[in-house]
Each structure stands twice: as C-alpha cells, then as structure tokens.
C-alpha cells in the first residue's frame, strides 16, 4: 500500500472542502497521513481523522511555522516524508502549497507537478495546461511525488465522527531551516460569510460593468449561495478586495457555475474561469469575447438582469 502524506496548511475546527478533497484522493491511493502546517487541537484532529487521516505529523515548535515564511514548513514536510517513508505528498494548489512543494522537491531531489485534477494508482497526474487548451498526463520520475491538487477536482471525503481514538501527533524537529523572511503581521481576510472563492460550487463575478456597485452581484451570489468574484479592472478600481480577483494573476476557479457580469472576457480573466462547468455571461456589448465561451449569453444591462434573477430564485425557493 502506498504511503501518502497530505499537507494541511491551516487546520480548522472542521476540515475545509479543499482539505477533504485532498484526504479523499490520498485515501483512494493508499494510507493517508496528515502533516499539520500549524497547531491542531483535539477537535481539529478529530475532524481530519473523521475525513480519513490515519496519522499526524507536526512540528515540535509550531510557532516557527507562523513566524517565518515557507522555509520552516519545508523543513517540516521533508522531515515528515522521511519519517513516514512517503511515496507521495498531496498539497493544496495554493500559493503556499506550491512554494512548499517547490522547495521540498529540491531538498528531496524529486519532482513537482502543480494544478493536478486527478491522480491515478500509478501516481500519474492529469492537469490542464496553456490556460485550459490541453489536457496533459505527467508523472514524477524520481523521489517522492510532490503534487498540488486544484480545488473542485475530486469528490471530497465526508467528515464523519469516526468514534475511534484520534491518533496522536508525532512531533518532528525542524532543525536549521535556513534564511527566511519574518512574518511581522497578518491582516486576516474579512469573513464575508460566503463560500471560499477557490472552492465554491457557484461563483458570481462582476467587472468594470458594475460601475462601482457590487450590490447586484453580491445579492445574486447570496440568493444562490455563491462566492463573489471580480475582474482585475474591478479590483484595481478598489470596488472590491483584491482577494476576489479571478484570473491569471488572481484566483483560479472551476465551479459548477460561473456567472460573469459586466466582464469583457480578456484572456487573463478567461485563464482563471474557463474550466467552469457552466458559464453564464451578462454583457451590454454583443461583441464581448466572453460570449464565445458562455453556455448562456445575455445581451443586456446587469443592473436589471441580476436583480430580476435574484428575485426569481428567491420566489422559486419560496
């Protein structure tokens, strides 16, 4: 049986959907052990255990992971790979996940594959490249396989109360992890109460066409239980936080549904959303490139279409 490590960057009271996807994939490949990127109390570990984690590795000095950028997390992961004799490590396809995988690959003299959407029993990885224009299968040819998994790629593990004893954390020394930047402050994201953008099943996104008012976009998002996204034009204008930017230099999403409102469909925007199952576009301009990839295109004013749709959804839901 293959030994698979799952890197959990931020253990939470209940595992996130992305974390449950990683655990489900790991369990489908072999024995799934978790590397804790930060402190995890009993409840957090019980949640991960319920979602399939069979063992835990953590740092003797978790505060080091919070105080310095990336380097200590690399030391932890490398120590865990050695302690577990891991065949593969699955990490989230986030900025942090990729960076940790990148550096661990150097220390372990192995290879990394990012943006995975599937991994088979031989550890062959499927991903898409060139902004979704090709599907590629690739594999790691030496050392433990380091793979970062895109959110919304596999069916997440159900978080169950396992009833069984939650395994203890095996703590590892980080040793000298080398020069690193100090993290002197962190300003947490303001919780919106909406689903996390990268993991959301539905996304409603607004662009320059919202003209300063995200109200109609947020209202439709709330009627659908969707996350709110944006184009760079909208985030650059300061109408919404930069963390909402979808695209090449923002978040990549692959939801079931992406509603694009007042967004022209530049190549950099499409790079972040065109793997959505369904795309609905609302735009005043019949020649907007976004219509070329929309399953439903509505030529019209978002200021009237979005509120009407939100009201109709609420009416049907009674």
């Amino acid at each position: 049986m293959l030994k698979i490590l799952v890197y959990i960057h931020a253990p939470a009271q209940t595992p996130t959907k992305g974390q449950r996807e990683l655990l489900a994939l790991a369990a489908s490949l072999g024995e799934a052990a978790v590397v804790l990127g930060d402190n995890a109390d009993d409840a957090a570990r019980a949640g991960l255990h319920g979602a399939g984690a069979t063992a835990f590795y953590g740092a003797v000095t978790p505060e080091q992971l919070r105080g310095e950028l990336i380097a200590p997390a690399v030391s932890l992961l490398v120590a865990a790979v050695r302690a577990a004799g891991a065949d593969a490590v699955l990490l989230p396809n986030t900025m942090e996940g990729r960076e940790i995988a990148a550096r661990a690959a150097v220390r372990l003299d192995s290879g990394v594959i990012t943006d995975a959407v599937a991994v088979d029993q031989e550890l062959n990885v499927t991903k898409s490249v060139l902004a979704g224009s090709y599907t590629v299968r690739a594999r790691i040819t030496r050392g433990p396989a380091l793979i970062t998994l895109k959110a919304n790629s596999v069916q997440p593990a159900e978080a169950q109360d396992s009833g069984a004893q939650v395994p203890p954390v095996q703590t590892l020394e980080l040793g000298e992890s080398g020069p690193a930047a100090r993290i002197t402050a962190t300003a947490p994201h303001i919780a919106s109460g909406r689903p996390e953008l990268s993991e959301a099943r539905f996304v409603v996104a607004g662009g320059r066409g919202v003209d300063g008012d995200f109200g109609p976009v947020e209202d439709l998002a709330d009627a659908l239980g969707a996350a709110v996204g944006a184009s760079r034009a909208a985030t650059d204008a300061g109408w919404i936080d930069h963390s909402a930017q979808v695209g090449q230099t923002g978040v990549t999403v692959s939801p079931q549904l992406y509603i694009s409102a007042g967004i022209s469909g530049a190549i950099q925007q499409k790079a972040g959303m065109q793997s959505a199952k369904y795309i609905v576009a609302i735009n005043k301009d019949p020649d907007a490139p976004i219509f070329e990839i929309a399953d439903l295109g509505i030529i019209g004013d978002l200021a009237s279409v979005l509120p009407q749709a939100a009201a109709e959804i609420r009416r049907r839901q009674g």
């Binding site: 509603i259 795309i279 399953d295 439903l296």
Partner: peptide
C-alpha cells in the same frame, strides 16, 4: 468551449437565466 445560446434582454432575461 463553444458559444451556447445568446439572447437579448427585453425585460425577461433574468427569468431566462
């Protein structure tokens, strides 16, 4: 990806959505 249906709003497009 290819373009699907494209409609022009004449007051009911929110319902069509």
């Amino acid at each position: 990806r290819s373009a699907g249906e494209i409609i022009t709003d004449s007051g009911q497009a929110g319902l069509a959505l």
